[in-house]
């Protein structure tokens, strides 16, 4: 069964004016779709043909000779995860247990936001910034290109895509503005909370 491009979990206009329908048209309709299509082209006859997406990512991580499989599979996963990290009327401070976890790990939401923004802005070139769970500890990290926490023993909780294609039509060179807007208006904290195990 080839992989399929999952639909966006909201209308492509739902995050306007913070994230435009035009950007979704390319980001979801072209970039995400190309990763799915490329992966489907590579899989037939390979050792990974019958594996789940997460299994392909883990099986090919760190092996330069399998970069085609890894890059496309990881980018399929990262983008699907990213769409769910956003929601209309999102952003701001989380509530409940998650707020307490951020307080304990970072010393408050402001400190978390500062670290997350620094990771996103400081990721040189193309990549992602993440809030992850490593063993029982919350951490902010960034990964280059297609690299994903899933391949390094971490549980992804939240991500922002900082490939230029993620924000260039709406924000051009102003990556800090995009990341601030993501935090203030787009983060789907309910989704993040559901990613916390048990």
């Amino acid at each position: 069964m080839p992989f399929e491009l999952p639909p966006l979990p909201y209308a492509d206009t739902a995050l306007e004016p913070y994230y435009s329908a035009k950007t979704f048209g390319f980001h979801h309709g072209k970039h995400h779709k190309a990763y799915v299509d490329n992966l489907n082209k590579l899989l037939p006859g390979s050792a990974y043909e019958s594996l789940a997406l997460e299994e392909i990512i883990r099986a090919t991580a760190g092996d330069a000779s399998k970069a085609g499989f890894f890059n496309n599979a990881a980018q399929v996963w990262n983008h699907t995860f990213f769409w769910h990290c956003m929601t209309p009327n999102g952003g701001g401070r989380p509530g409940g247990a998650l707020a307490a976890r951020l307080d304990a790990a970072f010393g408050g939401y402001e400190k978390f936001a500062e670290q997350f923004k620094a990771a996103a802005v400081g990721c040189f070139g193309s990549g992602w910034a993440w809030l992850v769970l490593e063993r029982d500890e919350l951490k902010v990290i960034s990964t280059p290109n297609a690299e994903t926490p899933l391949a390094q023993g971490q549980v992804a909780l939240l991500t922002v895509d900082v490939w230029e294609h993620a924000y260039y039509l709406d924000y051009q060179n102003r990556r800090p503005d995009f990341v601030q807007t993501f935090l203030d208006h787009l983060v789907n904290w309910d989704f993040v909370a559901r990613n916390l195990p048990g």
Partner: peptide, 9 residues
């Protein structure tokens, strides 16, 4: 991507 995205996406 910043070298070509506005025109070529």
């Amino acid at each position: 991507e910043h070298a070509y995205y506005l025109k070529y996406q």
